[in-house]
């Protein structure tokens, strides 16, 4: 094949990127170009538990999914509503404790505790964070950073909910297949759900709040209300992760308010690419297994995430997903002429 025989199919890719997916109707190949990455992601996630060898690594997959849920909630809040939450642990802890208490004290089955913990936990978190919602700036970050730490102290001090020992002996999922597929499907559900949401009209309002809250106020909408709705959605996702976590490990304790849950989702989001929603999930699939491999280093892991996070945010702030997207759209094929 000489160069004369080849031509780079160059022009129409640019048009495709900008034409909002409508070109997919042109041909099967175009359709494939559009849905292939999504299919790969979905199929890959669903097949993952089947190909992973040991029970240990299957448990890691569940972990990845829980972190992915948290990362989704962080990404949604930070890049679509403009609220930087440094306290993912608050969502996890609240969800976990509620699920644990419902299960242990009221004897409710798992199928009830998880949704109940998600909704009521979200309500509690929203209420807790409400004072800083009318304000712009760093207040939300600060307050959300403080809550998990304060929660730890309060539970310790009052010796409620099992005090420092935590609550043990919570029902587990029927078997590990249910467990894994439940969390995996939740991740996919919320990933595509949130992607859809941010392009709906109410999603545009959220983005408006982030872009320019004064104009939203001038349009006769209460920013506090819309922020609260967004926080509710995000914390529901986080609490869901917490509730699943407590059922997976059959335990709920103050370690759930630990820093890991706050920092890893942030690191995953930054690495994966903030604002893409799929990026944070991918970031979790990179970071969590690495962190499992580094388990023996103890708290150095947190330092390790923090350094990765720092490097990415300072030097490569677009993240892998945005980079990948760009490269995918620039992808050129040699075609015969």
């Amino acid at each position: 094949m000489t160069t004369a025989d080849r031509r780079k199919e160059r022009l129409d890719r640019g048009i495709k990127v900008r034409s909002d997916g409508i070109y997919a109707l042109l041909s099967w190949r175009e359709l494939g170009y559009l849905v292939l990455p999504r299919l790969v992601l979905i199929a890959g996630l669903l097949l993952l538990p089947l190909v992973v060898p040991s029970l240990y690594w299957q448990r890691v997959i569940s972990n990845v999914c829980l972190y992915a849920l948290l990362a989704l909630s962080f990404d949604f809040l930070a890049h679509y509503v403009g609220l930087v939450s440094l306290g993912g642990a608050l969502f996890i802890g609240t969800g976990a404790y509620i699920a644990a208490l419902l299960n242990k004290n009221l004897g409710l089955p798992l199928i009830l505790t998880i949704p109940m913990a998600s909704v009521s936990g979200a309500a509690i978190c929203t209420l807790l964070l409400l004072p800083c919602l009318p304000l712009r700036g760093v207040y939300f970050a600060i307050v959300s950073l403080m809550y998990p730490l304060a929660m730890m102290r309060i539970i310790e001090a009052l010796n409620i909910f099992g005090g420092t020992d935590g609550i043990m002996g919570i029902d587990s999922f029927p078997n590990h297949w249910v467990e894994q597929y439940f969390v995996l499907i939740m991740v996919l559900l919320f990933l595509f759900g949130l992607r859809r949401l941010v392009n709906l009209d109410i999603g545009l309002v959220f983005r408006g709040v982030k872009d320019n809250d004064q104009a939203v106020r001038a349009s006769g909408m209460s920013i506090t209300y819309y922020k609260a709705v967004a926080v509710f959605i995000a914390s529901a996702i986080g609490c869901l992760a917490g509730a699943c976590l407590t059922h997976i490990y059959m335990f709920s304790g103050i370690s759930l308010f630990a820093l890991d849950f706050s920092i890893l989702p942030i690191a995953a989001t930054v690495i994966g690419g903030g604002g893409t929603l799929a990026g944070p999930v991918i970031g979790c699939f990179i970071l969590v297994p690495i962190s499992e491999l580094l388990r023996e280093f103890g708290t150095l892991r947190i330092a390790f995430y923090a350094i990765i996070l720092m490097a990415f945010i300072v030097f490569k702030s677009e993240g892998l997903m945005v980079y990948g997207q760009r490269k995918y759209h620039q992808f050129e094929r040699w075609v015969k002429i």
């Binding site: 009209d201 109410i202 545009l204 983005r207 872009d211 320019n212 104009a215 001038a218 349009s219 006769g220």
Partner: peptide, 24 residues
């Protein structure tokens, strides 16, 4: 606003979706 405050990341017509979403 004297200093224009559009939603810069949205197309012009999508800018109006936000006020159109308001209760009024």
């Amino acid at each position: 606003f004297q200093i224009m405050r559009p939603y810069y990341t949205l197309p012009a017509y999508k800018n109006l979706v936000i006020p159109l979403f308001s209760p009024r």
